[in-house]
């Protein structure tokens, strides 16, 4: 099961720039490695990360095979309204992980 750690401030002032940090557990197998017997280890990566803020997309990232295991993605946004931030990672072999964080804007 995929695990994710999200760090979003619980409270913020309206118009404040807030930092959002996300960490998700994933092997990020590049597809370029071989086993001892020479067989290719098939690619298994997260390819897309999307963050929506009250339904509106505010951040999107495309991930590539060179990115290390357990991708850590941090970014900033402006706190506009109280509500929900939804994080979604999708990738190879039907991988999906979703996390939700709530924020109170005063």
């Amino acid at each position: 099961m995929a695990r994710a750690l999200i760090n979003v401030p619980a409270k913020a002032k309206r118009g404040e720039v807030i930092a959002i940090k996300t960490l998700v557990s994933h092997v990020m197998e590049s597809g370029f490695r071989h086993t001892n017997l020479g067989a290719v280890i098939p690619r298994d990566i997260i390819d897309t990360f999307v963050c929506t803020y009250n339904g509106e997309e505010i951040f999107r990232a495309q991930l590539a095979p060179a990115i290390a295991a357990n991708p850590f993605i941090a970014f900033h946004t402006v706190a506009t309204d109280s509500g929900k931030l939804e994080f979604k990672w999708t990738g190879d072999n039907g991988f999906t992980a979703t996390e939700i964080a709530t924020i109170t804007v005063e």
């Binding site: 099961m1 695990r3 994710a4 750690l5 999200i6 760090n7 940090k21 960490l23 998700v24 557990s25 295991a69 357990n70 850590f72 941090a74």
Partner: peptide, 17 residues
């Protein structure tokens, strides 16, 4: 910084497991 911040320390994913 990675070790000090539990939201950035990948070891914490295993702790949750």
């Amino acid at each position: 910084a990675m070790q000090d911040d539990d939201a950035a320390n990948p070891g914490m994913l295993a702790v949750l497991d």
